[in-house]
């Protein structure tokens, strides 16, 4: 840790020594140095987590005993949550098909199309209120659906 602190201070000092007119810092050593510091922190955290909370192993797979409750992986919980939440048929389309298609196909389709839908060239948060609002709504929706998926585990 002390070493990392020293490295950080060095990085700051070196940055300050750069002439003002230079807007970018060279990839090596400035950018790489910061990356190395972060990498050490991440690798350390991973080893710590792995030691404190080892990967689990439950009973051997048994197709005849369903464990309760069962959840999918946390990053699919929002899909699972939406499937549990959406129980309405729309015309001839059954609820289950909507429940699967919206968070998987439609959601990823929308994500892919983001840069082609949002043609506003500004990167200022204030000048792209609609995009920011939609982003916040989508983020909250995914979090709420994830929570819904946890509560309604099978």
């Amino acid at each position: 840790m002390a070493l990392i602190e020293i490295e950080r201070e060095e990085a700051v000092e070196e940055k300050e020594r750069e002439p003002v007119r230079v807007t970018g810092l060279p990839f090596f050593p400035h950018f790489l140095l910061r990356e190395v510091v972060v990498m050490c922190l991440i690798a350390g955290s991973l080893i710590l987590l792995a030691s404190l909370y080892p990967a689990g192993l439950l009973q051997p797979a048994d197709p005849f005993t369903t464990p309760t409750p069962i959840y999918p992986e946390w990053y699919f919980l929002y899909v699972f949550g939406f499937l549990k939440f959406w129980t309405y048929d729309i015309g001839p389309i059954p609820a289950k098909v909507i429940g699967v298609t919206v968070p998987m196909v439609l959601w990823y389709g929308l994500l892919i199309l983001v840069p082609f839908i949002d043609r506003n060239p500004s990167t200022e948060l204030r000048k792209r209120k609609i995009a920011v609002a939609l982003g916040v709504i989508a983020l909250i929706a995914v979090l709420v659906l994830t929570y819904y998926g946890i509560v309604h585990g099978e």
Partner: peptide, 28 residues
């Protein structure tokens, strides 16, 4: 992540994969 989940072949692996493949199978 999804494919790695099945490999230990414990109860979690089997049943989480059942849910996952079930969800994927329901896409029109």
């Amino acid at each position: 992540g999804f494919s790695g989940y099945l490999l230990p072949w414990d109860q979690l692996a089997l049943w989480a994969t059942k849910i996952g493949t079930g969800i994927a199978g329901s896409i029109p």
